[in-house]
Design a protein around this nucleic acid. Structure first.
Length: 353
DNA sequence: ACTGATGATTCGAT
DNA sequence: ATCGAATCATCAGT
């Protein structure tokens, strides 16, 4: 009906001009609901922007970011599977992080879905609105002269308006992604105990290099790789282990025995495969430095040596000895002068320097 | 809720 | 740059 259409044109001008934009209850319901939704979701008034038609840098930034985050851009149906496969293949020993990864990806996918749905809705609404306005103008052209430039201008205004709405959508999507991201990073920063396998690996190395528990960079990398943790985590672990071991050797005596036995077993049973046969020498005298407790001589007065423990291999809390032999690099038996200075008598329990 | 274990962070020294 | 040391923050068993 002409009256209503007249009203719509008027309202479109109102809308585009930015005056009480959302007061129109007679607006096309679809468009109205879309705009209401925008208003609700963004918390921003639709009339807020009124500028730039050149490709503004902010829009480009938003686009780039959305693209980089995988929100915009091509559908990646197989992408998730591929990513999961890659994550599983690259290490396979990080269930926690992969769970977090999948959680992250899931939420990102949700954002992506919402984003695309909204984008499509806007697109559709924009087209509908444009064609409708054009139809009205065409109709009006029967009763009054309508210059093509006026139509162009109208269409231009509509498109600009809708693209600014799109930008708001992109902006809020970006915000959502960033929030998700920061949450994800926070979650990753949370402490998780290492897997049993990783801990065993580290302990085996530590106790079999007790005289010089300072793994080289390569050794760290290898430990990290095999344990499914980072080199930095390996360094942290050794840092913590050294200081805590030194502080209370007695507490670690049992653990030391266990791992020494394990190592001894793997040596005597020839489970080594790396060809680095007897590269590190457990019976070297320097091995005794940290191993000599003197604190609780009740269980084992002497540091656990391979020879003396051959007979007591009966008890092993850790049932299966997983291949650990190839870990130890022969080149790593460097002697750190600073560690060998104090006589193996009292290892300074309460190191209050 | 409490507590010990443990991974991460920080800081000064080398 | 890396270490020891102290400390923080969280986990995990009770």
């Amino acid at each position: 009906p002409g009256v209503l259409d007249q009203r719509i044109v008027g309202l479109s001008v109102e809308l585009l001009g930015g005056k009480h934009a959302l007061n129109c209850h007679r607006m096309k319901p679809a468009l109205f609901s879309v705009l209401c939704e925008i208003k609700e979701k963004t918390g921003l008034s639709v009339r807020s922007s009124q500028e730039e038609e050149p490709v503004d840098p902010q829009l480009m930034r938003l686009d780039n970011m959305l693209l980089a985050e995988g929100v915009a851009g091509p559908e990646k149906g197989g992408g998730l599977v591929a990513a999961a496969a890659a994550a599983a293949a690259s290490g396979g020993v990080s269930p926690d992080s992969s769970i977090e990864h999948s959680d992250y990806r899931h939420k990102l996918a949700q954002i992506r879905q919402i984003y695309h749905a909204e984008l499509e809705k806007y697109e559709q609404a924009c087209n509908e609105f444009t064609t409708h306005v054009m139809n009205l103008l065409r109709e009006q052209s029967r009763t009054r002269p309508v210059a093509p430039r006026e139509i162009e201008r109208m269409v231009g205004i509509i498109h600009r308006k809708f693209s600014s709405i799109q930008m708001q959508l992109k902006q809020s999507t970006c915000e959502a992604v960033m929030i998700l991201r920061s949450r994800f990073l926070d979650a990753r920063r949370k402490r998780r105990n290492f897997s049993k396998q990783a801990t065993e690996l580290l302990n085996e190395y530590f106790y079999s290099h007790l005289s010089n528990p300072y793994p080289s960079e390569e050794a760290k990398e290898q430990l990290a790789k095999q344990g499914g943790i980072t080199v930095c985590q390996v360094s942290n672990w050794f840092g913590n282990k050294r200081i805590r071991y030194k502080k209370n050797i007695g507490k670690f005596q049992e653990e030391a025995n266990i791992y020494t036995v394990k190592t001894a077993m793997s040596v005597t049973h020839g489970t080594q495969s790396g060809g680095s046969g007897g590269s590190f020498n457990l019976s070297s005298s320097s091995e005794m430095f940290l191993g000599l407790p003197g604190l609780n001589g009740d269980t084992l007065p002497a540091p656990p040596q391979v020879e003396s423990l051959r007979h007591s291999m009966s008890q092993g809390p850790y049932g299966e000895g997983l291949a650990s032999g190839q870990l130890y690099s022969p080149r790593d038996v460097r002697v750190n002068p600073t560690q060998l200075l104090p006589p193996a008598s009292i290892p300074c329990p309460a190191a209050a320097s």
